[in-house]
């Protein structure tokens, strides 16, 4: 089999793994981000400290270190995660922590009057959050969240350090076999660019759909 056929077949397999990781970890990180963000604004003291602790820790650690701890570190404690699931957990925690910042900022940017008007209508706290604050938070946090998702697509390449056979790992392996760096890495770069272009387009469509004026 010639170089290109071999490389492209492996690249597609790697891309499938990358996509699997992203398809699972992006929604999970958005959910985590919203839970952490709301917990930081509305939680009691204990919930506030726990959520702030999680967010500060995983924003403070380089993602590569987080992945190594989750895969190798936890294994030392007899908690065995597969490379695939360790990556998903790492991306979810890191992405969710960053997204929680956007969510927190979005909630705090909503005027006090919105909550007051909800209460004046007789809404309880939960109704106020679900029907008034959450939809406005979604709209306001979206640009930041989409930015974070783009980073996550790029970061997904880091999972090669714990042995996930995603596209970057395929590229590295082929580079050490064939030393055709320019072709290999340019192809990989093009794939990442394509993924990010698609994600940007999707978020643009969502943003336009949610636009309120």
């Amino acid at each position: 089999m010639d170089f290109w056929s071999n490389f492209l077949i492996n690249l597609v397999q790697g891309l499938t793994t990358t996509l699997q990781i992203l398809v699972i970890s992006i929604p999970l990180s958005i959910i985590t981000g919203f839970i952490l963000g709301f917990a930081r604004v509305y939680g009691n003291k204990i919930i506030f400290y726990i959520s702030t602790g999680i967010s500060t820790t995983f924003r403070g650690l380089p993602l590569i270190v987080t992945l190594l701890i989750l895969f190798f570190g936890l294994a030392d404690l007899k908690i065995y995660l597969s490379p695939f699931w360790a990556s998903i957990l790492g991306f979810t925690l890191c992405g969710g922590s960053y997204i929680s910042e956007y969510v927190k900022g979005a909630i705090q940017s909503i005027e006090q009057g919105q909550a007051e008007a909800a209460r004046a209508l007789g809404m309880n706290k939960l109704q106020e959050i679900i029907y008034i604050i959450l939809p406005q938070t979604l709209i306001r946090a979206l640009p930041g969240v989409s930015n974070e998702i783009i980073y996550m697509i790029q970061y997904s390449s880091l999972s090669f350090v714990i042995g996930v056979k995603e596209i970057f790992s395929v590229a590295k392996t082929f580079n050490s076999l064939y030393f055709r760096s320019i072709e290999i890495f340019t192809t990989v770069a093009f794939v990442y660019l394509l993924l990010i272009a698609i994600a940007t387009l999707v978020f643009k469509i969502i943003e336009n759909k949610l636009k309120i004026t």
Binding site: E111, G113, Q114, E116, A117, A118, R119, A120, L121, G122, M123, N124, I132, Q136, I212
Partner: peptide
């Protein structure tokens, strides 16, 4: 909350849900 629904409140800054 049950009482507030019986009291209409109009705010200076409207406070319509954006």
């Amino acid at each position: 909350n049950k009482i507030r629904r019986k009291i209409g409140f109009v705010f200076q800054d409207f406070n319509l849900f954006h």
